[in-house]
Simulated scan of single mutants.
Amino acid sequence: MIYLELLLGFLKVGCFTFGGAYSAIPLIRDVVLSCGWLSDEELSYMIAVSESTPGPIMVNLATYVGSSQAGFGGAVLATLAVVLPSFFVILLVMNLLRGILKGKYAQAVLQGLKPCMIGIILATGVYMTLHNCFPLVQGAKADLRALLIVVVLAACMAMYRTLKKKKLSPILLIIASAMLGILIY
């Protein structure tokens, strides 16, 4: 019976959540609390853990709740239930749009979006760097350790590009920044 409840509960979450993972949290909270799978406090802790682990929050929460209620099978079932609706919607949309996306006007729009996305990502990176290295709060001091990490990573990227004549892998940058953060902080 728990398998059917997990399936229906997380299918509901997967079918009726729009706007990303954070908009799913109220619906997940409603389903989990109404079924009595977790307490409100346990769910709050799990949301915090799901935000700090790789992967979408919805999937992480579904996997955890499924596992806590019905073991490995429950984890698999809840995860599939929350993911399948989006998967089928994407398949449907891609089949409908396949011909349209090959058109010259659609390609022109997509090519025009690339520089916009690069600009948005760059602006976000610059904002986050400035905000974290030089806090905007009155009386706050610049975080020299964060600035040191940024300078070291930028130097590593420049040296790698100069010596190897190719870009440094983002995965290596993430690992290097994690290690620097652990060492410096």
Results as ranks from 00 to 15, higher is better:
112 G>Q: 01
112 G>D: 05
113 L>A: 08
113 L>C: 13
113 L>P: 05
114 K>E: 09
114 K>D: 03
114 K>T: 08
114 K>R: 13
114 K>G: 00
115 P>D: 00
115 P>R: 02
116 C>S: 06
117 M>C: 11
117 M>F: 08
118 I>Y: 10
118 I>W: 07
119 G>C: 00
119 G>I: 00
119 G>A: 04
119 G>V: 03
120 I>Q: 08
121 I>C: 10
121 I>K: 06
123 A>F: 02
124 T>P: 09
124 T>H: 10
125 G>S: 08
126 V>R: 00
127 Y>M: 12
127 Y>I: 08
128 M>H: 08
128 M>W: 11
128 M>V: 12
128 M>K: 10
129 T>L: 15
129 T>P: 08
132 N>C: 09
132 N>G: 02
134 F>H: 07
134 F>Q: 07
135 P>K: 03
135 P>E: 00
135 P>L: 02
136 L>V: 13
136 L>R: 13
137 V>F: 13
138 Q>W: 15
138 Q>F: 15
138 Q>Y: 15
139 G>K: 02
139 G>R: 01
139 G>Y: 03
139 G>E: 06
140 A>C: 06
141 K>N: 14
142 A>R: 09
142 A>K: 09
143 D>H: 06
143 D>Y: 05
144 L>A: 11
145 R>G: 03
145 R>P: 00
146 A>T: 07
146 A>Y: 09
146 A>I: 06
146 A>R: 07
147 L>F: 12
148 L>Q: 11
148 L>C: 10
149 I>W: 00
150 V>P: 01
150 V>F: 03
151 V>Q: 05
152 V>P: 01
152 V>W: 05
152 V>T: 10
153 L>Y: 05
154 A>D: 12
154 A>P: 11
154 A>E: 11
155 A>M: 06
156 C>V: 15
156 C>E: 10
156 C>Q: 10
157 M>P: 07
157 M>I: 14
158 A>G: 02
158 A>D: 07
159 M>H: 12
159 M>Y: 12
160 Y>T: 07
161 R>I: 11
162 T>F: 15
162 T>C: 14
163 L>H: 10
164 K>D: 07
164 K>T: 04
165 K>A: 12
165 K>Q: 14
167 K>W: 14
167 K>T: 15
168 L>K: 05
168 L>G: 03
168 L>T: 09
168 L>Y: 05
171 I>Y: 11
171 I>R: 04
173 L>M: 14
175 I>L: 14
175 I>R: 07
176 A>K: 04
176 A>L: 14
176 A>F: 10
